[in-house]
Design a protein around this nucleic acid. Structure first.
Length: 872
RNA sequence: GCGGGGGUGGCGAAAUGGCAGACGCAGCGGCCUUAAAAGCCGCGGACCGGGAACGGUCGUGCGGGUUCGAGUCCCGCCCCCCGCACCA
């Protein structure tokens, strides 16, 4: 045998192990019912937010979360868990279709190609997915069940057609859901959107608002994410109150969170779109009101809500009557206005305005000269403020004592001296007794707009016949898309499917003529239950067997970006609850622990005006970066990766140059998973060097092919100091994986390799094997290779996780800092856990120089850490 | 405006109220080499004592406080990021 150079070469070992894992189905997860299934084994379900396979291919942001779940998955396998770690494709939806239109390819073709690319890229990164469970949401085998779930929703009264105004995006040629529209513009593409009344399918997620809110409490999610969902659901408790309208039979209903301030209601405001506006407007005001309504309708959502603009409004000429005052009492006669600060779709679209207790109402009353009756009598240090509030010259939104006059003549309501909570209850009780109102809870959450006017989505399992809507029978699912050559949106708010006449015109089971629903489902349909299908992906009879979902759910760890905080995560929770209510799954929440990874950013360079200069137009000069043309010195800043700035990093390039293990390790070493952090190309070689050092710990530079250092070929006792360091490393890495602190786990392994390199010939085979196991979740290819070369048994992927001995974590002797008045003046070495007086004696001697001539008033001893003398 | 998270060397970052800056990058010095790369060993917050050893002072956005001791806890302020934003 000849000796040859044995350098760490990821290009050969990575494909080798990827092939090994695939051929031996190493990462196959066992389901209940499988021959080798062990019901005693604990399970662990680690899920990534599956990607949207775009034409751009994988971005370095994808592997960040994927590596984190892969580390945890591999760790859980090593600690005896049956691990479900699947991957698939969120493959229906707008971007694929937009791309297809631009390049004139069929979206099915473009999507299939993009999936190929994504799969290839992910496979080169060595993730331990069970690829046998892979599917895309556009597979008929999958969307058959998406359609089936729609039927469940429909049968339970949770899917309905509506003509209410919805967001229409002209540029995208479709309607969009609330969470897809930000400040009146589309989330994708940033196109303007407008409200239009269109027939649409809606899902009644509002029926689940309270449960979606309540069940957040038991989830292991970040507080900020829970807060986002709580705000989106937007629960508020209050009352609905009915007001009589002078000269009309109709009663106006308002929602308020402050029924206790009813005494201060001095006007009412209706949204311009409120249905009673027309009926109550007087002839003198008709023109002004009509103009205002027209102007409000023409305003974009941005103009109406985004600006901190002046309040506007118009008097309708009508008056309402405050139910607290006797009929005819002029104090109860309040003008009715319309104004666009009241939103038609929230509450009842009308408010009672209490300028004394609400800043918006106060501002409005001031501007239009409406009375501001004071209703509070605060008694604080600030006498001037108290007086202004009492006189109705200042608004008071804090809890404050009620004025004496907040009472009805019969004494049934007398708020003075009551807390706000008691006052609310008193007023509500009175309203209920009088048949004038009731306690009421309102939510900001709206029903889910569930249809799109596009081609590339799940068809609805719906037929329209003369008798109305008919659901397609289960046996006839899936309803597949017709193969169309021209799938572009038609320019009118109708799906391109309308042109597939042969498909649209059909018959129902009785042979009666029927038209297919031409809208398709939104992208979020398929992603609202994919975590269920992963449990049982090949089931032909059910969407997922109860046995499989009972075993695997909930997802133990779900990792992804924050951008899905209110859309996907809320929809998935909703569908899970519906399927639970229908008896199909046992859990009420799909994702137990959710972790949001931070964004991977990039460095960019900006000129003196703060403008970003694309990387291609910069040049390194001295120790700085300058503009290639002007020579201006540029300052470094951090941005999102962007094609425009030329600072996008392609994971393929990193794999080619350094290997997948380096990419994985670098992404985990950059900083805490949850933080946003910039990609620094200069740091990548650092972790690569660490892997090379780990390699050299085992493999001599020149050797017979496949061999390790001579001293590692046979068993022998390892060095005690190395052994201690190893136990510490095992302890640290184990704890850090548990708390998802991968950056510090890697630092601990670096320390071990540095120490071990210095005493390389004292290492034992057994020590190196344990270290390689620790490294495995992070750098699986390198560690499998070393494990094999060292003669480890079987595949490293199921080798039991190494353990540590607590006794090995402590030293016999420790060094203590000796402080005088909190300043470190000396150090002493004493026995571990030495008695206090021994420690003090040693410390006193060491600090004698600083204690001379002083009186020690206090001695603080922190065992094995430090001694502090307080001396005067 | 409201809610949440932050601000630590030249850069990414560590640090149960107990020696701030572990680990990595960039930088500097040395070994090896004809030379370079790679590798290996070491130094590395700032300032002062003319340089080293050594010693001193200051230092975790700013100002106060609690404590023997504060990056960490409390109060006030400044700045940055994320979310919500006329939701009654």
């Amino acid at each position: 045998m000849t000796e040859q150079k044995q350098t760490y070469d990821p290009a050969t070992i990575e494909p080798k192990w990827q092939r090994f894992w695939a051929e031996n189905k190493v990462f196959r997860a066992k389901n209940p019912g499988d021959a080798d299934f062990d019901p005693e084994q604990p399970k662990f379900y680690a899920l990534d937010m599956f990607p949207y396979p775009s034409a751009a291919g994988l971005h370095v942001g994808h592997p960040e979360g994927y590596t984190a779940t892969d580390i945890v998955s591999r760790y859980k396998r090593a600690t005896g868990h049956n691990v479900l770690h699947p991957m698939g494709w969120d493959a229906f939806g707008l971007p694929a279709e937009q791309y297809a239109i631009q390049t004139n390819t069929h979206p099915a073709k473009a999507t299939a190609r993009n999936i190929e690319t994504f799969r290839r890229q992910l496979q080169t990164l060595g993730f331990s997915y069970d690829w046998e469970r892979e599917f895309g949401t556009c597979d008929p085998d999958y969307f058959k069940w998406t359609q089936w779930i729609f039927k469940v929703l429909h049968q339970r009264g949770l899917a309905y057609e509506s003509d209410a105004p919805v967001w229409w995006c002209e540029a995208l040629g479709t309607v969009l859901a609330n969470d897809e529209v930000i400040n009146g513009r589309s989330e994708r593409g940033d196109h303007p959107c407008e409200r239009r009344p269109l027939r649409q399918w809606m899902l009644k997620i509002t029926a689940y608002a309270e449960r979606l809110l309540q069940d957040l409490d038991g989830l292991d999610w970040s507080e900020s994410l829970k807060t986002m969902q709580r705000e989106w659901i937007g629960r508020s408790e209050g009352a609905e109150i009915e007001f009589d309208v002078d000269g009309h039979d109709a009663r106006l209903r308002v929602f308020t969170t402050r029924p206790d301030t009813l005494f201060g209601a001095s006007f009412m405001v209706l949204a311009p779109e409120h249905e009673l506006v027309d009926a109550i407007t007087t002839s003198e005001q008709r023109q002004a009101v009509a103009d205002y309504v027209k102007a409000a309708a023409a305003k974009s959502e941005l103009e109406r809500t985004d600006l901190a603009k002046d309040k506007s409004g118009v008097f309708t000429g009508a008056y309402a009557h405050n139910p607290l005052f006797a009929e005819g009492d002029p104090k109860g006669r309040i003008p009715i206005w319309i104004a666009d600060y009241v939103i038609v779709s929230y509450g009842t679209g009308a408010i009672m305005a209490v300028p004394a207790g609400d800043e918006r109402d106060f501002e409005f009353a001031r501007k239009f000269g409406i009375a501001i009756p004071g209703i509070f009598a605060p008694v604080t240090e600030d006498k001037e403020r108290d007086a202004r509030i009492a006189a109705g010259e200042q608004c008071c939104t804090d809890e404050a004592p009620y004025a004496e006059h907040c009472r009805t003549p019969d004494g049934r309501i007398a708020l003075a001296g009551m807390t706000q909570a008691d006052a609310k209850r008193t007023v509500i009780d009175w309203l209920v007794a009088e048949g004038r109102g009731e306690a009421k809870v309102t939510y900001k959450l709206r029903d889910w707009l569930f249809s799109r006017q596009r081609y590339w989505g799940e068809p609805f399992p719906v037929l329209h016949t003369v008798d109305g809507v008919e659901l397609v029978a289960d046996e006839d699912l899936p309803v597949t898309l017709p193969d169309m050559q021209d799938f572009k949106p038609g320019g009118q708010p109708e799906s391109p499917l309308i042109r597939a006449t042969d498909w649209v015109e059909t018959t129902d089971r009785q042979g009666r003529p029927a038209k297919r629903e031409i809208n398709t489902m939104p992208g979020a349909a398929g992603s609202s239950w994919y975590f269920l299908r992963f449990c049982d992906p090949h089931n032909q009879d059910e969407f997922c067997s109860k046995a499989a979902s009972d075993y695997w759910l909930p997802v133990d760890l779900y990792v992804g970006g924050t951008e899905h905080a209110v859309g996907h995560l809320l929809y998935s929770r909703f569908w899970t609850k519906v399927l639970h209510d229908a008896g199909h799954v046992s859990v009420v929440e799909p994702f137990h622990k959710l972790y949001n990874q931070g964004m991977i950013q990039a460095f960019a360079y900006q000129d003196s005006r703060g403008a970003i200069v694309p990387v291609a137009q910069t040049r390194i000069e001295g120790d700085g970066v300058v503009h290639a043309e002007t020579g201006e010195k540029l300052t470094q800043t951090v941005t999102k990766m962007s094609k425009r700035y030329g600072n996008v990093v392609n994971p393929d390039d990193v794999v080619r140059e350094y290997g997948a293990d380096t990419l994985r390790l670098y992404e985990m070493y950059m900083g805490p998973l949850a933080d946003a952090k910039p990609w620094n190309p200069k740091d990548v070689p650092g972790v690569h060097r660490f892997l090379q050092r780990a390699w050299r710990l085992c493999v001599p530079e020149f050797a017979e092919k496949g061999t390790v250092h001579a001293w590692l070929r046979a068993d022998r006792a390892g060095d005690v100091e190395i052994e201690k360091r190893l136990h510490r490393t095992i302890h640290k890495v184990t704890g850090d994986i548990e708390r998802m602190a991968f950056n510090t786990a890697i630092a601990a392994m670096m320390i071990f390799v540095n120490e071990a390199t210095k005493a390389i010939d004292k290492l034992s085979r057994d020590q190196v094997l344990r270290f390689v196991q620790l490294l495995n979740p992070f750098a699986p290819h390198l560690s499998e290779e070393l494990w094999q070369r060292l003669g480890g048994e079987g595949s490293l992927s199921y080798a039991p996780w190494p353990t540590w001995d607590e006794a090995m974590l402590v030293d016999d002797e420790v060094e203590l800092a000796v402080q005088v008045l909190g300043k470190v003046r000396a150090r002493v070495r004493v026995a571990n856990n030495a008695p206090k007086d021994e420690v003090l004696a040693a410390a006193r001697a060491a600090a004698a120089k600083w204690l001379a001539g002083k009186r020690v008033v206090k001695e603080v001893v922190v065992p094995n850490k430090l001694v502090n003398f307080v001396a005067k």
